[in-house]
């Protein structure tokens, strides 16, 4: 069973280090608006703000060129991305390029150092709330695989909420992603998205 929880609501009578919670007097409280799944003891946020972690895949837009082959990347309202490129990497980037990178280092929760860049060309960028990213990926990437297969698009998903889509049918994919964003909390989502894309309703 899932039920709504609110900031300040006690969700467990014992201390437990769950995401989006805090512990006070040996009890666990929610910090956010979310759904608590009693069977798995997990708290699913309905909206969240990205907290960078090592190895997170992130998508951003090159905003300026730094020193020693580094670039500044716009990835979030306040977290700065710095993209490091390998000397052997002949790829050059220009302001406005959309790039995917992997978080290598986090400095004071405010700057993330990114490596392993990949230029994302000819697609478009959209943004969804980061709380919906796990749903967009699906269990073992089932949802995103389904989505790319059925729409014949390429999709890259950044943990920071940016989603890049390329292909003829990108509008169908966007439609599906917006629906995932809207209905992420309603069970049976995978089937609904599948129906939607297969039936071309």
């Amino acid at each position: 069973m899932r039920h709504f929880v609110f900031p300040g609501e006690m969700i467990l009578n014992s201390p437990s280090e769950l995401n989006y919670t805090y512990i006070k007097d040996d009890k666990t409280y929610s910090k956010i608006l979310g759904l608590f799944d009693e069977s798995s003891n997990s708290l699913i946020p309905l909206k969240s703000i990205w907290q960078p972690r090592l190895n997170d895949k992130v998508i951003g837009v090159i905003s300026s060129k730094g020193r020693n082959g580094s670039y500044d990347l716009e990835i979030n309202q306040y977290i700065k991305g710095v993209l490091l490129t390998d000397r052997r990497d002949r790829q050059r980037y220009y302001i406005g390029d959309i790039v995917e990178g992997t978080v290598k280092e986090i400095e004071r929760r405010k700057t993330v150092i990114l490596e392993k860049p990949m230029l994302l060309k000819n697609g478009i960028l959209m943004k969804i709330n980061t709380a919906k990213i796990p749903r967009l990926m699906g269990k073992e990437n089932t949802m995103i695989n389904e989505l790319t297969d059925l729409t014949d698009t390429k999709i890259a998903v950044g943990k920071n909420g940016y989603v890049w889509i390329m292909g003829e049918n990108k509008n169908r994919a966007i439609e599906a992603i917006l629906r995932i964003d809207r209905e992420a909390h309603v069970p049976g989502l995978t089937n609904r998205i599948k129906d939607m894309l297969e039936n071309k309703e």
């Binding site: 300040g8 805090y22 909206k47 703000i49 709330n129």
Partner: peptide, 11 residues
Amino acid sequence: LANAGIPMKDL
């Protein structure tokens, strides 16, 4: 604030 997903101790 809760609607924005900002983490808070209480409402």
